[in-house]
């Protein structure tokens, strides 16, 4: 398989050069941008396979980039990177279409691994994102009762998905999750992808009103 074509969006020069230094040997970096409009334009031109997207960038944030790019080319996949721990930011980019979320202190090899997986169409969940999702989907279907959803299955996780997320939150890598549950890594991937889909499509109150829900808890 050829090396993934990667585009970097981050407003901090230092972070961009740091990330480049760590991954340049294993991926092709086709461009970088430090603000929304330039990012949207260049991604449209250069058609990378994976965009590493900072959640907080000037001009509307990562969410803006996602929305604008999605309208023109939907074959580009996004991995959100952030130093922020705020659930509402993370959930917002994932719901806008990012395929995963990792924190910026991720090691180089883990990041490269994540890029490859994103390119293959899989979802990448950091322990923290797994924790946010578990929290958002806690309380069973009852807490979403007043929401109008076309598909009620979207509003809750299966027991298996919950198990997988819990192991990821506990710090297990996908292959260890698979070993722990006695299933194939491929199956783990598909569970995580299914969770990602629910995360993006569900109308659960906790997801759409994450900020206020956070403050209450």
């Amino acid at each position: 398989m050829s090396r993934p074509r990667v585009f970097l969006v981050d407003d901090h020069e230092l972070i961009r050069s740091g990330i480049k230094a760590e991954i340049a040997d294993d991926v092709d970096i086709v461009g970088e941008a430090d603000e929304v409009i330039a990012a949207v334009e260049m991604i449209g031109e250069r058609r990378p396979e994976v965009v590493l997207l900072d959640v907080h960038i000037p001009g509307g944030g990562g969410v803006r980039v996602l929305r604008d790019v999605r309208t023109t080319c939907d074959d580009v996949r996004f991995l959100a990177l952030s130093v922020s721990d705020a659930a509402e930011d993370v959930i917002a980019v994932v719901r806008a279409g990012a395929s995963g979320y990792v924190t910026k202190n991720i090691s180089g090899s883990d990041l490269i691994d994540a890029i490859w997986r994103i390119r293959a169409g899989d979802a990448v969940f950091s322990p923290r994102l797994a924790g946010f999702v578990l929290e958002a989907f806690a309380g069973g279907p009852g807490s979403a009762a007043h929401e109008v959803t076309s598909d009620p299955d979207l509003d809750q996780l299966t027991a298996r998905e919950r198990q997988v997320l819990r192991l990821i939150a506990r710090g297990y890598a996908y292959k260890h999750v698979a070993a722990e549950l006695g299933i194939s890594p491929r199956t783990v991937e598909s569970h995580v992808s299914s969770v990602l889909r629910k995360l993006q499509l569900s109308n659960r109150y906790e997801l759409s009103h994450w900020a206020s829900a956070r403050r209450l808890s």
Binding site: N105, P127, R128, G131, L134, E135, A138, A169
Partner: peptide
Amino acid sequence: VRVELVVVGD
């Protein structure tokens, strides 16, 4: 060392 903390619920 880095301690990666995830808390669900409280």
